[in-house]
Design a binder for these strands. Sequence first.
DNA 1: AGCTACTCCTGGTAGC
DNA 2: TGCTACCAGGAGTAGC
Length: 280
Amino acid sequence: MPELPEVETTVRLIRPDTEGRRIVSAQVGWLRTLGGASVRSFRKAVIGARIERVWRRAKYIVFDLQGDDGPSGALLVHLRMSGRLVVEAEGTSGGPYARVSLGLDDDRVLHFLDVRKFGRFVYVADADTALAALGPEPLGATFTAVRFHAALRARRGAIKPLLLNQAFLAGLGNIYVDESLFRARIHPLRSANTLSRRTTAALHTAIQQVLKAALVKEGSSFDTFYRTPEGQPGSYQDQFQVYGRQGKACRRCEGTVRRLVVGQRGTHVCLRCQRPPRTS
DNA sequence: AGCTACTCCTGGTAGC
DNA sequence: TGCTACCAGGAGTAGC
C-alpha cells in the first residue's frame, strides 16, 4: 500500500520524465478517478499546461501546472491501494488498468494505472488550499518530539487510528504505523494521552527511522501492487518486524507476532514487546 | 468536536 | 477442478 516512502520514491523517479513537459492530450478510462470532475472540464484544465514542478505532500503526488499566463493549478495524484504512475512511449495504451493517460510533448505518455480504482487523479485550482487540512510531515522540521507529545496529550483515542489520521500526521499508513509502534514498544490500543514524554520520544524516533529506512529501500512490495515507476519492487518488506508476520516468531523476544483488528484495520503486534493497556 | 462504522473496488485466495 | 464468498485497505462521509 503506497505510503510516504512509496509515494516519495514514485516522485523521485517520475520527476525527470515529467518536469518541464507540456501536456498535449488527456484520456480518461475511469471517470471517478477524476474525483467528481467531468472529462470535459479536466481536459480543458490540463491540456496545454506545462508541468512546472513535481513534489510530494503526505501521500499526494503534486504536479504544479503552468499556463501561458502564469500558474494554473495543479494535479493531485493519490495512489491509494493499487495506483501507479509510469511514463511510456507514445502509442502504448497502458493496459486495461490505465485510468488516466496524459500525452506529453516529448511523444511519451504519463499513465495512471490503478487496478482497484481507489486512486485519484484530480485537478485543483490551488494545491496549497487543497492540501491545507493535512497534518505535519513526519520527516519535516516542524514535527518535533515536543510538539508531538503536546498533540498526543489532547487526544483520548487509541494511538494507532490517530497515527493513521492524515490530519494529525501526514504520510503514514497501516504498514509503517505497525512497524513504528513495534519499534517503540507501544500497543496500538494505548490511549494517545497516556504516552509519557519518554515514550513519545521513542515513537517519534521510531517513525522517522522506519520511514528513512524504507525510503532507502524504495518502499515495500509484498503483493502484486506497488512497483516503482521503473517497474521494480521495493525491498523494505524484507525488514518488516511485525507487518504480515502473524504466527511467526518475534524478532526481538521469544513471543509470537499476533494479528488484531484495530479501527477496522489489520494490526500486527508482539504482545510481549507491546504490552496491552489495562482497559479494553 | 472527536471518534466509529461504512463505502468504494477488484484480484487473490480460502473453503467447499 | 471450478465455483462462491470473503478479504485487503486510504480516506471521504455519515452518524452518534
